[in-house]
Design a protein around this nucleic acid. Sequence first.
DNA 1: TTTATTAGCGAACAGTGTTCGTGTCAAGTA
DNA 2: TACTTGACACGAACACTGTTCGCTAATAAA
Lengths: 235, 235
Amino acid sequence: METPTPPWRTTRKPRRRQLTQDAIVGAGLRIVVEEGLDQVSMRAVAQALDTGPASLYAHVANKDELLELMLERVMGEIELPELDASRWQEQIRQVMRESRRVMTKYSDIAKVALINIPTGPNGLRIGEFMFRLLLEAGFSPRDASLGLDRFSLYVAGDAYEGALHGSRVRAGNLSPEEYFEQFFGMIQAYYRQLSPEQYPAMAAHVDTLMADGDDERFEFGIDLLIAGMEARLRS
Amino acid sequence: METPTPPWRTTRKPRRRQLTQDAIVGAGLRIVVEEGLDQVSMRAVAQALDTGPASLYAHVANKDELLELMLERVMGEIELPELDASRWQEQIRQVMRESRRVMTKYSDIAKVALINIPTGPNGLRIGEFMFRLLLEAGFSPRDASLGLDRFSLYVAGDAYEGALHGSRVRAGNLSPEEYFEQFFGMIQAYYRQLSPEQYPAMAAHVDTLMADGDDERFEFGIDLLIAGMEARLRS
DNA sequence: TTTATTAGCGAACAGTGTTCGTGTCAAGTA
DNA sequence: TACTTGACACGAACACTGTTCGCTAATAAA
């Protein structure tokens, strides 16, 4: 309930609203955290700022641009260590972990990273770090370049896949434990009834296939990629 | 223009349409190939079958299920070699290449693979093959399981990222060459104006960063993953 | 022949991104 | 001080989306 405007006031609205791009991006991020990426509609963002959707287009070209701006700000939260090429394996791992941690904090937003190659200052900041790290570790420019590219794809892909589980938790109004039991239990039950003739290997190792969680799988992927890079350094 | 129904016919429509799930999935796939995944709407599919959107829901629970069914059929096109664990590196590479080839043929559809863990017979068929291959190559069940998981993620992630370029080609009505010039030229120009103080490494290697195409980057990622698995086998 | 079942489908609902045109205020100019 | 200018705010609308509700009509069962 708002206080009714006294009729002798010439200005009906109390004050001209000060709508800025920053405020819009912030409102968008709040919605992402609380309700997930596909609840971020222009209408929802506008409503959070107590205005209509058309008003946003003065500060943001379209929804895609808004999402990119949101991602840029998120990537600003990623903290980088002081570069030390003698420990490049460790530092690559650290940056990938940190990137995934920050993206996961903002729910689905990894989807945006997967679609748009981040070209903002914060995206470049991280790219520059990893690229320099690989170069100083002794990789050829081409290997460093391709490595950077594949690492980025891996982090974005994994973060997105992981966030999808989170979205389903939200959608089903479950606790993570309930979700785990329900979802994995279902899949596990499904795999269990696989005919051992058709799928002997998977049928024999159902438990192993379901054993590891998101974090372990992510780390395993990093292990593979880094070991692969090490092999390149030796040859 | 249709021939008007003669008034003495008691049945207005010539015959009850025989709408099947297969036909719906087929129509969906045709649209994916021709216009891309986000042109696949229930209305578009229905129109392709000369009917209304509501009619589809008798054969398909919802759009998500339709997309999963489409993916399942696509994965049926993936051909597997005869399993030979002595050449596991080669065969893993072959399956990944083939998977990417087939998915790329159907435009954006990798997006569906990234969201839903494929649980249909064709998805399992490929999973079973890779899993068995790794087991017989001497990997522990856990390593084989995690490897399978990361390989799948990598293929889906890469295929999706690659398909996005294709979508933009379609959206801009350009030839692939025009797109390449326009898009990469733009990014290249953008990277070129990076301040060498802020981004010295990237600024110094702009050309290298842009040198490789989708295929080379994909192969490099496979190299890393397989070398990483080899390292695990030795330790 | 009568009844039960069900695919087909028109219409509608609630939601989306985006644009147009109008309003309205704040600053710049005469 | 009075007037013009220009930019922002925003209600309304457009063309879309997935999905549901009932009704029709054709087939299958009794």
